[in-house]
Computed example of a mutant assay.
Amino acid sequence: MKILVTGAAGFIGCETALRLAARGDEVVGLDNLNAYYDPGLKRARLGRFAGFPNIRIVEGDIVDRDGMAALFAAERFDRVVHLAAQAGVRYGQTHPHAYADTNLTGFLNVLEGCRHGGAEHLVYASSSSVYGGNTAMPFSTAQATNHPLSLYAATKLANEAMAHSYAHLYRLPVTGLRFFTVYGPWGRPDMAPFLFTRKILAGEPIEVFNHGRHARDFTYVDDIATGILAALDRPAAPDPEWRGAAPAMASSDAPWRLYNIGGSQPTPLLDFIGAIEAATGRKAEMIMRSMQPGDVPATFAETEPLTRDTGWRATTTVAEGIPRFVAWFREFYRL
């Protein structure tokens, strides 16, 4: 198949593009290589595509309506994996328009490209942040998501609604995946595993929010990438049991599906830091802070629907994943 991967220079996008190419698909990777975090790391990720003649990189922006229309018209993609986004929960408090531009307008351009370009299936990234003020664990796609706590979460909820409208109006098969705290080699510098590891190795104190009482369903990037491929290979279809009188939250009479994709093994933050300490051989100096605005105390993914429909299940534990991440970090930064 010819597959578009948006955000191909990103953490998850790079790993996904590599796996698609390794199995023989033709991959077109789109990225704008912006400076939200170090573009040098993004270009280094693109260097991983060397040796894969079936990956082509296009430097462009999903916000560019005309450029996106031209790309879809020229390439006629079979399927699309949409991972480009303005990420980060707290960045939205200072740069709200970046979220509207990329996560709303950009996603609309992807939907329009799929609609007019005849794509067979669109898989896109949603987020565990959509659960917002909900504290009922584990998080299930059967639960309502009416109380987002950040603008980022609100835009991801909007993506799910926008996707449903296109599935309903144009019968475009669309699958949304709610990612849960992805980590691993080549990860994002603005995320806790990266920040903690860098500071612990440098002998600097780390800030630990909510006084360390957080728990996260950390999910290794390899597991996320295999889950994306599993979902991509099973185009969304109408749910024959869906009824408007009692509407299910994660399916529809349109070809639209929502799934959680996570490790289903919540790890207390202090245990996660302990795993980094063990992998680095260094003790962390911790400065305890209050919870930050827009944050949530815990996440925990209920993933049985994705397992039932695709056979996918996360297999990498934090005890396995953190040493791999730390080893990559030390090699990449020569520490």
Rank of each mutant, 00 (worst) to 15 (best):
Y170T: 03
F272I: 05
G294V: 05
R65L: 11
Y124T: 03
G113S: 02
F72A: 03
A237P: 06
T16K: 05
V110G: 00
L169A: 15
A245V: 02
L172N: 02
G7F: 04
T181G: 04
M288F: 15
G113H: 10
D64L: 14
A163P: 02
L151C: 07
L108H: 10
T197D: 03
H211M: 13
A279T: 05
L269R: 05
L201Q: 03
M137L: 14
L83F: 07
F11S: 05
A119G: 00
T94E: 15
P305F: 10
I228E: 02
V326T: 00
S264D: 12
T315D: 07
A192T: 04
P305E: 14
S140W: 02
D61K: 10
A154E: 07
A119W: 02
G60K: 06
H147M: 06
Y37H: 13
T226I: 05
T6N: 03
A158K: 00
Y131R: 00
P53S: 11
E302S: 06
R188E: 12
A35K: 13
G212E: 11
E15V: 04
R243M: 04
F332W: 07
A35P: 11
L269C: 09
V221H: 00
E120C: 06
T310G: 11
A125Q: 05
F332K: 11
Q93Y: 14
R56D: 14
T141W: 00
V208P: 02
L18G: 03
P323Y: 02
S140G: 06
M68Q: 07
A236W: 00
P205D: 10
R198Y: 08
M191G: 04
A314Q: 08
V58T: 09
C14Q: 08
I322H: 04
K199M: 15
G176R: 01
M286I: 15
V110F: 12
H95I: 13
I276Q: 02
G92I: 02
A142Y: 05
S129D: 08
G281A: 11
Y131E: 03
R234T: 06
L149I: 15
H121D: 12
T141M: 04
L229S: 10
A327C: 02
V28Y: 11
L108V: 08
P305D: 09
Y91S: 15
A202L: 06
K283T: 14
Y131M: 03
P323M: 10
Y333P: 03
R45C: 10
E204N: 13
F49M: 10
G113F: 09
R23F: 09
D271P: 08
I206Y: 03
A35W: 13
L108P: 01
A98V: 06
T307R: 15
G262W: 01
D295K: 12
F11W: 13
E75S: 12
T135F: 06
R188P: 00
E15P: 05
D64R: 09
A167I: 14
A119F: 01
A98Y: 08
A245E: 14
F332M: 07
Y124H: 08
A192W: 01
W256H: 02
E302R: 02
A167N: 15
N54L: 14
